[in-house]
Design a binder for these strands. Sequence first.
DNA 1: CCCCCCCC
Length: 607
Amino acid sequence: MSFKLSEGALSVILAGGNVDDPVMQILGHKKIAGTSSTTGSDRFRLLVSDGRHLNSFAMLATQLNDKVTSGELSDFTVIQITRYITSMVTNSDKGDKRVMVILDVKILALGTEVGFKIGNPKPITEGTEVETGGLKQPPPSRPVQPRSSTNLVNSSAPVLSSPGSSVNTHPISSLSPYQNKWVIKARVTSKSPVRTWANARGEGKLFSIDLVDESGEIRATAFKEQCDKFYDMIEVNKVYLISRCTLKTANKKFTNIKNDYEMTFTNDTQMIPCHEDTTDIPSLTYNFIPINTLAGLETNALVDLIGVCKSSGEVQSLISRNTNRELKKRDVTLVDESNTSVSLTLWGNQAEEFDGSLQPVLAIKNGRINEFGGGKSVSLMQSSVFQINPDITEAHKLRGWFDNVGSTQEQESLSSRTGMAGGALSSNWMTFKEVQENQLGCGEKPDYFTSVATVLLVRSENSLYKACPTAECNKKVIDQNNGMYRCEKCNREYPNFKYRLLLSVSLGDLSGNQWVTCFQEVAEVVLGTTSQEIGDMFHDDKQFREVFYKAAFKTYTFRLRAKMENYNDENRLKVTVVDAKPLNVQEYNARLITEIKEMAGVGNSAK
DNA sequence: CCCCCCCC
């Protein structure tokens, strides 16, 4: 990067003249403690160079002090002084002197990026001639773009006015928040759907794209107006010329795109399709890691993976606990040359359309690590890229390994085996005493366990409520006593409602007892009837109570979820029934016999 | 300015 300083600007300014937006280089700074007239805080004096002269009487406005402390105004930094004033001060031994107060600056290049003194500037001495040679016009006030080949650079930021023309572009890796004059030529490697949000800070919509060129990759996000303006125009795999986005520090928590920054579209953002030859722009870059290294990574970390889909499960349907919406998912098993396997979860259409029968190679960019039952798995997200049999060397290599070696080997699994009946990790059989001893539910996420237990008591009070009739909302409605029922969540009234159950049940097993909560579907199993029927008999107290009495002393295999909750500074284990199946006595006995044999060492010695 | 991404 080369920068042209506004040579001669200092002598003009110090002679009382004006130069618009001069570009200067900082060559030093000095703290003058507690000298700000307004705040009494520190002030900084800067040694600035216009490439021809040095001047150490530039003072920095105190509101810009943080730019010094943050290092943005370190030595060799090139700045554009966008606002300044000069004034005369009386200096006791040197007479009157003009000083420059810098009110606002634009950082064009950080000192660490520039790294040297530009030109050979000399101090302005008393009586330095004001060189009037070029002063009818102000000195060049803009940095000259490196090796410009177009007319893009005459404004403060490039305008992409002529699509397809030869544009001098910048590598993605050179982008930073300190330089806004760039054009990149980049391929869109992924594009998210438009998503809306609403929170305390406001609402809006957005989408993100990932961009790549030969130097690197970066994520760009368009909000609101820009979202509408650009969404339809942008196509994955196409190459665009892009300029005038703002850059900010990327949060690695949300992407593993290799860039410290991410871009945000602005009103001025230009993005136009590139009609030149784009074969030199790469299509997608992965940062694959071996599957076995997942074990050492944190939950929720984002990773790029490649593996052979050794097996694939069925599509499963489930109801999201957060949204009440139906979700479709499919778990597949990925293996690679580290001879390790991990479960990968596909969602929605990707889950439904996936065909694993030919054991394809799958490449994932930006997959998310999940943890369940002590195992690790990877889940696809909206922002993930998912490729089946990609035409890349890693995929071909993996294919060769799998067909020759991997397919016949047993891989060590990082994931809990949810498909295996009786698999210790997935079932997690526990008595209620063991649940306490093992402090289940004390982690950040809930713990799941399975228990054989008997219903001791079902509370009938407040067990039935009138709920919102819409499929996805089960909120309690308010009876308006005029034939209408109001749902606060939907913010509307309905002429009808549906009955739903929310049961408190005391369960007992051989070790103790535990109060649990059963929602609608499970509650109907436990009560042996439907919520509608119970609602219909609500006014017949005897019949109503009878249902609850009859539920007692039945034994089930319960799938339970435990999470510690805090009420008025008191911790209480909240246990919810996820599933209740009538006890299968044969299976239960078989398991007990196996456990007894293990405890007695009978199984081992019998071998 | 989002940052939710679901389930066992």
